[in-house]
Simulated assay, not measured.
Amino acid sequence: MSLAHALLTALVERPCCGAELTDRFNRSIGYFWPATHQQIYRELATMKASGWIEPLPIETGRGRKRAYKASPAGLSELKRWVGELQAPRPVRDELMVRLRAAAILGPTALTTGVEARLAAHRATLAHYLALEEKDFSDPDTTRKQRLRHLILRAGIESEAHWIDFCERALALLDE
């Protein structure tokens, strides 16, 4: 996946300026496809040059910001990309290598790192559960909302998995 496709998705949902896009991105897509403010602005420039987005007319008044929307070419690209086949990504996690090394070396200071990671996963899970409670408590929702909820559930289940994994790793490291 590319950042451009993530940004196109956000702009199809709602045209906006770069600052608003960055804020919206960080509160949704950014949970599973993080990007910095600079990366987003660079990608917007590339997307504009490619014809995937087009600027909206600038509003008059102070603090005017350039807003963008997906162009017909951008919509076409997004539809093409969504339909593209994708192979599962292999796991590439440094913790797995560190655990393997700890298995060979014997006791190490890895416990501290795993405890920190466990705390981070617990905090993220709490955040995701709060989002679920706030945004998805109504069972009668649209397809769009159910798909968004499915994405959030994937994050919740992933965090729960990592919490369980870290707890089991700590138990083994403490042996």
Rank of each mutant, 00 (worst) to 15 (best):
Y31A: 01
K48G: 07
E84W: 06
R100E: 14
A109Q: 15
L105F: 11
A45C: 01
R92H: 13
A35S: 06
L95T: 04
L21Y: 14
R27K: 03
Q39L: 12
Q86F: 14
V114H: 00
A49T: 11
V114F: 01
M96H: 15
R24S: 04
C16A: 15
P57R: 10
H37K: 03
S71E: 03
A10H: 05
L44D: 05
K69H: 10
E59P: 06
L85S: 12
E13S: 15
P88H: 10
P88T: 06
P90C: 05
Q86I: 14
L8S: 03
R92S: 13
G30N: 04
G61L: 08
K69M: 11
E13V: 14
Y41S: 14
S50H: 09
A120I: 00
P57Y: 06
A87V: 14
H37G: 01
G63D: 01
L44E: 03
A116Y: 12
V82D: 12
P88E: 01
K69W: 09
P55D: 05
Y68L: 05
A109P: 09
I29M: 03
T22G: 02
G113C: 05
W52D: 04
S28R: 00
C17S: 04
E77R: 13
K65E: 14
T60A: 12
R62E: 05
L118C: 11
P57V: 07
K79I: 01
G61M: 08
S76E: 07
L44W: 02
